[in-house]
Design a protein around this nucleic acid. Sequence first.
DNA 1: CAGGATCCTAAACGATACTG
DNA 2: CAGTATCGTTTAGGATCCTG
Lengths: 148, 148
Amino acid sequence: MEKPDPSETAPRRPLSEIIANGGMQGNLMAAACPSREVLNHVTSRWGVLVLMALETRTLRFSQLKRQIGGVSERMLAQTLKHLEGDGFVRRQAFEVVPPHVEYSLTPLGLEVAERVRSLADWIEVSLPRILPHWDPEALVAYAPETVA
Amino acid sequence: MEKPDPSETAPRRPLSEIIANGGMQGNLMAAACPSREVLNHVTSRWGVLVLMALETRTLRFSQLKRQIGGVSERMLAQTLKHLEGDGFVRRQAFEVVPPHVEYSLTPLGLEVAERVRSLADWIEVSLPRILPHWDPEALVAYAPETVA
DNA sequence: CAGGATCCTAAACGATACTG
DNA sequence: CAGTATCGTTTAGGATCCTG
């Protein structure tokens, strides 16, 4: 590992403590705020669905993949890493062969998941009120039997 | 009800009514469900911020642009169109020169916005609990003074 | 002022193949 | 089984210029 250059101005060590202990809260309207990144992880295409799937129970990778329609392995793995990196998801690997890995929500993750689910639930049940606003052109792309 | 054109296979007219009146609700776990698209509009990078900005007051295009740090005109316009197309945003144009256009939330939009804000607020205030989980490498990209 | 049109870059995404 | 690596495609997104 390289030794730190004395001429470096950025205070590397205390940064996370400064942020964490300062009681500072994020501001999503500010372009450079890290809360933007957290928001992106949580509201990403698959982030929402992963949080919902894990809200009620622990799941394995393949179970998640099956439950979340259309997700690719690559995206699922990446999404799980992001959420794990934010402290929302806990990854528990059992040293057996074949591999066995379980994913669950942390207490912190459960808190976001509740908010996410509130939004997701609303969309699901409000869909009948939303679709009438759609351009008919966009609507015909969906065959009725695929809606539910 | 008019008789369907024998040559046309797709039932164009009744589709929106079928969906809307059927009491059908969406299923986000299904890849082909239109609720996925609504979710994408709402949770898109700028969709969240637009809904938050409009929750409390009507705003003009340029006001929105100023308030939402980092958004480009193109993305703002596109986001507003998506949200308008879902029935969340109302666009009111005054026929004057120079143009004057006001954006506000519909009652439907206010309902989503409340859920979105609940999530956004949580992220903002919980940021100090989240950042300690981050890889220090990712953290140093943010100078302390830009956080708040 | 509010955007539409155009062009371009970067990022997200998916499919496949491969490995511990 | 649970991924990673690689590749190619698609989409999101930004910059700029232009117009009613």
